[in-house]
Amino acid sequence: MSSEYRCPLEDLLIIDFETTCEENVFDHPVEIIQIGVVVLNIKDKVIREDVVFNKLVKPVVNPILSQHCIELTGIQQDSVDKADTFSVVYQQFLDWLKEHNLDERKFAFVCDGRQDMWRLAQYQFLLIKENFPAIFRQWINMNKIFQDVAKEKYLSIAGRSNLQKMSNFFEIEFDGHAHNAIDDVKFLAKVTKKILDTGRFVNVNETLNCISGWRNVPENVDPNWKLDMHKTHKVIARVLPLASVKRRRAYDPAEDYGICLFCKKSTIDTCVGGVHKQYPADLYSQIKEPFDFATVAGLKRD
Rank of each mutant, 00 (worst) to 15 (best):
I128M: 09
R301N: 06
F132K: 03
G113P: 03
L261F: 10
K106F: 08
K43G: 12
Q122P: 14
I35P: 00
I15H: 02
R200L: 11
I157Y: 04
P223K: 06
I157R: 00
D16Q: 05
V110N: 01
R48W: 12
F262C: 12
F170H: 08
D252Y: 03
Y257M: 04
W96D: 05
F293W: 05
D44I: 15
L155C: 11
C210V: 11
S66N: 10
V30L: 07
E23F: 04
P223R: 08
M142F: 12
K226D: 12
K277N: 08
A158D: 15
E71R: 13
L94V: 10
P133Q: 02
V191P: 08
D148W: 13
A297Q: 04
I145F: 08
V51Q: 04
L127F: 10
E130Y: 06
I236P: 01
S79V: 11
D282W: 05
I135M: 02
R215F: 01
F107G: 11
S212H: 02
K265H: 14
N41P: 07
V191W: 03
P253K: 03
I33E: 05
R215V: 10
F262L: 01
E255M: 13
H179V: 12
V239I: 15
N54I: 02
N180Q: 14
L283F: 02
I15C: 06
Y90F: 15
L12N: 00
I211M: 09
F201K: 09
N180T: 13
V38A: 01
H68T: 13
N224F: 09
Q92D: 14
F132A: 06
E31Y: 10
V60N: 12
V239C: 09
A121Q: 13
D269T: 11
I135N: 00
E4D: 15
W225Q: 06
I75M: 03
C111K: 01
Q138E: 07
E4T: 15
R248A: 08
L40Y: 04
Y123E: 12
